[in-house]
C-alpha cells in the first residue's frame, strides 16, 4: 500500500481536497482512454503492415536485407530499462524519496534519449548504407519507417514531457497528494515501452 504511507489523514487533509480527488479520477480515466485510442492507431498500422507483409511478395521483399537484430535488441533494452527506471521514479515519489525520484527520472530521460539516438543511427545506416527509403522501397519502407517513426515520435514527445516533469518537480509543482502529472507521465512512458515490445517482435523477430 504505497499510497497509504504518504497520504496521512483523510483525502480532505493536506490540500488534497474533494474536488481534486474527483477531478483526478476524471483525468485518469480520460488519459487511459486516450491511451486506448492511441493503441488503436498503432494497431491499425500494425494490421496494415501484417496485411501487406502477407500479400505474397515474401519478407523481406526482394532486394532488402533483414534488419540488424543484435543492434535492435541492445537498443530495445535501453528503452525497456527506461520503463523500469520510470516505474521506480513513481514508486520513490509515492514513498516521498524526492532525490531518488529525481535521479530515476533523469535516468529515464537519458535512456529514452539514448534509444532515440540508436534509432537515428539505425535509420541513417538503412538509408545511407542500404539505400532503403521511406517512399522508394515498396511496402518495406512504408511500413517500417511509418510505424517506427510514429513510435519514435511518441518517444520524443515522452522525453520532452518527462523533462518538463523534471523541471516542474524541481520547482515544487507537485505535492505528496497532487501528482497526477507524474502518474500520467509514467502511464504514457509504459505505454510507449509496451508498443515497442510489439514492434520489436514483429519487425525484428519474425
Amino acid at each position: 500500500m504505497a499510497v497509504a504511507s504518504i497520504a496521512h489523514g483523510s483525502a480532505h487533509g493536506d490540500g488534497a481536497d474533494q474536488l481534486y480527488v474527483e477531478t483526478r479520477e476524471l483525468r485518469l480515466q480520460g488519459f487511459l482512454l486516450f491511451l486506448v485510442s492511441d493503441c488503436v492507431l498503432f494497431s491499425s498500422f500494425i494490421f496494415a503492415y501484417l496485411y501487406l507483409r502477407n500479400s505474397g511478395q515474401g519478407w523481406p521483399p526482394p532486394g532488402i536485407k533483414r534488419l540488424d537484430v543484435a543492434f535492435a535488441a541492445w537498443n530495445s533494452v535501453l528503452l525497456f530499462g527506461s520503463g523500469a527506471t520510470m516505474h521506480y521514479a513513481l514508486e520513490n515519489w509515492k514513498h516521498g524519496n524526492f532525490m531518488k525520484y529525481m535521479w530515476m527520472l533523469i535516468f529515464t530521460i537519458i535512456l529514452g534519449a539514448g534509444f532515440l539516438g540508436g534509432q537515428a543511427y539505425e535509420y541513417t545506416h538503412l538509408i545511407v548504407a542500404e539505400h532503403v527509403s521511406w517512399w522508394g522501397s515498396g511496402i518495406f519502407g512504408a511500413s517500417f519507417f511509418t510505424l517506427t517513426g510514429m513510435h519514435g515520435f511518441h518517444v520524443f514527445v515522452g522525453v520532452c514531457y518527462l523533462t518538463v516533469l523534471l523541471l516542474q518537480s524541481a520547482a515544487g509543482v507537485y505535492t505528496g497528494q497532487k501528482y497526477f502529472g507524474i502518474t500520467a507521465g509514467t502511464l504514457y512512458w509504459h505505454f510507449v515501452d509496451v508498443i515497442w515490445v510489439v514492434l520489436f517482435s514483429i519487425f525484428y523477430l519474425i
Partner: peptide, 22 residues
C-alpha cells in the same frame, strides 16, 4: 537485378516456390 525485381516484378511474382502464385 534483385532491386529491379522488387520494383518491376514483385507485384505479380513471388520469390518462392512455383505454386506460390500472386
Amino acid at each position: 537485378g534483385q532491386t529491379l525485381f522488387a520494383q518491376k516484378c514483385s507485384a505479380c511474382h513471388a520469390i518462392g516456390p512455383f505454386n506460390q502464385r500472386i
